[in-house]
Design a protein around this nucleic acid. Structure first.
Lengths: 231, 231
DNA sequence: TTGACAAAGTGTTGTATAGACACTAAGGTT
DNA sequence: AACCTTAGTGTCTATACAACACTTTGTCAA
């Protein structure tokens, strides 16, 4: 069955920049898939695909992620729409890019056990990418860097329970600069958005750090009162 | 001539939220056009239209603005892409929304002398709009409000030469709160981005204010050195 | 011409926040 | 028992922000 229109139409796709945080390597990573078909067969690319006619753009992004990587529950936000003629050799294609933040620890097994055509790459060591996906990733990095300071989205990258050092490391990796430990703790604890848990770290070869969790309910309440998150 | 594809494709359009500042009324305005054809004939809508196959999305937005309103040189930036199924009764349509800032004083004649189907509306007094254009406008307002504090885009709305009171009024309108005159002047002048001109206001029924212009070159140089604009 | 009006223009002070900075505590390893 | 690694903690200074009221300048009308 085919579809005929009076005027030509571009193809419309979604692509996802999925960020994960490697706590051990103190490294920000991106999930890529290896293309099996042409064009760019064998090259690495962002997970994504064509938009179905009866789903929203966000649903489309979630579905493609589910299909290609098995990842389902995550923070997802529209990034930017790329549509230069020539960005896809098959013909005019417009892609709505999304970026996602996932708790990599939750998915560690999945990504590892999956077929070899899904893998995490450190942001600082990306392979050559299909289409204009390098440009999309640069845009996503800039957005993340800009946004993480004013909205508590960084917590989406950490496990539910985390140490203050892990949180600081997260900001250091994303913002690409070092932060002062005392000032950071003073500030983040002063906001009253972290709940100190009774638990401490386990299996570390040094003094174990206290675990905290982000208090999302309190954050939402404070925002209503005009509270402004800022690192 | 018709075009046939194996899979169905959505239509792709661009829409523009054009902001202008009414210096007399101290009012933020949006440029709308009155639809002549179905659907939503007679209703007001954002200027926009279908994307051609051989132009970038931004070119497309500029072309549509030129065609429908005569406006050509302006600040234009991608806003967000709206693509819910059902947002256009003619069938699945995805629209890439842009927002633009124009020096309304430069275009005052054009908008007025044009056909009656182009008009400025105060943001606080918009008519009922076609499609989901009210939602697009709300998104644009939020973006403008968020962005104007951290990037000197506000100057795009003022004439080249402006008074400090006009600049303050601009921020007050966009941010929807009053600012202290002395603190505002101290801060904005302290940034060293305004050039004090030899000229003063004319034809005002009170003490004439000094005119300033924004020093874009200096701003660009400062940004390279890590300068952060913030109101 | 002068008095009323309207907006321009101008500094100080207290308060809060950001940034610089170094040592002790705890726990596991050798 | 000594060592190694990371956790955890407080003060001071400089800067930025917020609150606050009066004088100056020019126009217009009586």
């Amino acid at each position: 069955m085919s579809h005929t229109y009076k005027y030509p139409r571009p193809s419309v796709t979604v692509d996802c920049v999925v960020f994960g945080l490697d706590l051990d390597a103190d490294d920000l990573k991106i999930l890529l898939i290896q293309r099996s078909g042409e064009p760019f067969a064998g090259m690495w690319a962002l997970p994504g695909g064509f938009v179905d006619m009866d789903e929203t753009l966000e649903q489309s992004a979630r579905r493609e992620l589910q299909e290609e990587t098995g990842i389902s529950r995550l923070f997802l936000e529209q990034l930017y729409t790329f549509g230069d003629p020539g960005r896809d050799p098959r013909g005019r294609t417009i892609t709505i890019a999304y970026y996602a933040l996932i708790k990599m620890s939750d998915y560690a097994i999945q990504a590892a056990s999956d077929a070899s055509d899904v893998a995490w790459f450190a942001v600082s060591d990306l392979p050559k990418l299909a289409f204009d996906h390098d440009k999309i990733i640069q845009t996503a990095l800039a957005r993340l860097k800009g946004k993480v300071r004013y909205q508590p989205i960084g917590f989406e990258l950490l496990p539910t329970k985390f140490t203050l050092s892990q949180l600081q490391g997260l900001y250091e990796v994303i913002l690409e600069r070092e932060l002062d430990k005392r000032n950071f703790r003073k500030k983040i604890l002063g906001m009253g958005l972290l709940v100190e848990l009774e638990e401490i770290q386990k299996d570390v070869a040094h003094r174990a750090a206290r675990l905290y969790r982000f208090d999302e309910d309190r954050y939402k309440r404070l925002v209503k009162q005009g509270f402004n998150f800022e690192i």
